[in-house]
Amino acid sequence: MTDTSVKEAGSRPAGMAAPGSRALGSALPRILMNSGLAQILIALVLPVAIVTIWQLAGTNGSLFGGVLPTPDRVVSAWWTWAFGAKGMGLNPYSGTWLANVIFSTERVAEGFLVAILVGVPAGIWIGWSRLGAQILDPTVQMLRPIPITAWLPFSLAVFGISGFSAIFLIALGAFYPIVINTTQGARHVERNLVRAALMMGAGRLDILRRVVLPAALPAIFTGLRIGLGIGWTAVIVSEMIAVKSGLGYVLWDAYYVGRMDVVIADMVSIGVMGLLSDQLILLAERWALSWRLAGAR
C-alpha cells in the first residue's frame, strides 16, 4: 500500500493536528483548537483578511485604476448573473449562471466518466499483465508529456466547435493520472492475496475483479482526485476556445468585454465546483474503502 501516506495526509481528521499545537502548553487551548468549529474559524482567518484588504484598498468599487473590481461589485455581479432576469440574450450575464455551471459540470462529468471507463481497465491491464504493460505502457508514456493544451487545435480540427471537443480534452487529461495510479495499485497487489485466491479456486477474471481491483482501489482513488482536478482545468481551457457555453466561455467572453467583476465571480464559481466535486470523490472513497477505516477505530 504505497499510497497510505498520500491518503492519510489528505484526510487527516481534526484530532490529528495535535503535534503543532502541543507547543501551546496547557490542554485547554489545544482542545479548543482541535474542535470542529475552531478549525473552520481558523481556516477562515486568511480568506476574510484578503477579501477585507481587497475591499478596503478599492475606491468607488475598483482598484488599480479600474482594472479590478472590489469584492462587493463581484458579489453583486454574481447575484445578477445567478438570479437576474434573462434578458432575451441581450445581457449574457443575467440569469445564466446556473445554465453555464451545468454546461461545464456536465462536460467534466462526461469526460471524467470516459477517463474512468478507459483508464481503470487500462491501468489494471498494464499493472497486472506483462503483455498489457508491453503493449500499452510505452504509448501512454510517449503521449503523456504532451500537455492537454497542446491537444486543443487537434481537438478543434477533429470535433469542431462543440462540446465533444471539451469532453475529449477532459477525458484525455483525467486519463493519465487515473491510468498511472491504477497501474501502481495493480502492480503492488500482495502476492499471497493472489495465491490465496488461486488456492480457493478463483479464475483469472475473479482474480482481477475480486483481488486486483479492490487491492488497487486506494491508489485508483488517488488517481481519480488528481484526474478530476485536471478535468476542471481542461473544461475551462477548452470552453475558452472550442465551445460557446460554460464557465470557461463566460470567463473569456467577460474578459473581452471588460467585465472583470464577472470574471472573478466565474473564477470563484469554478473553485467552488472543483471543491464540491472533490468532496464527492472523497465521499465515494470513504464509502468504498470503509474496510480500511474500520481498523483505525
Binding site: 500482495e190 499471497n192 492475496l193 495465491r195 490465496a196 485466491a197 488461486l198 488456492m199 480457493m200 479456486g201 478463483a202 475480486r210 483481488v211 479492490p214 487491492a215 482501489l217 474503502l289 474496510w291 480500511r292
Partner: peptide, 28 residues
C-alpha cells in the same frame, strides 16, 4: 495448479482486507 483440494494457510493469514470475516470464509 493451485486448487481447493490443497488448502493453504499463510503466515500472515492473507485475508482479503476488503471482505468481512464471513465473506472471507465463504470466498472459496
Amino acid at each position: 495448479r493451485p486448487g481447493p483440494d490443497r488448502g493453504v494457510v499463510f503466515q500472515e493469514a492473507a485475508l482479503f482486507p476488503w471482505l468481512t470475516v464471513w465473506e472471507n470464509v465463504v470466498f472459496g
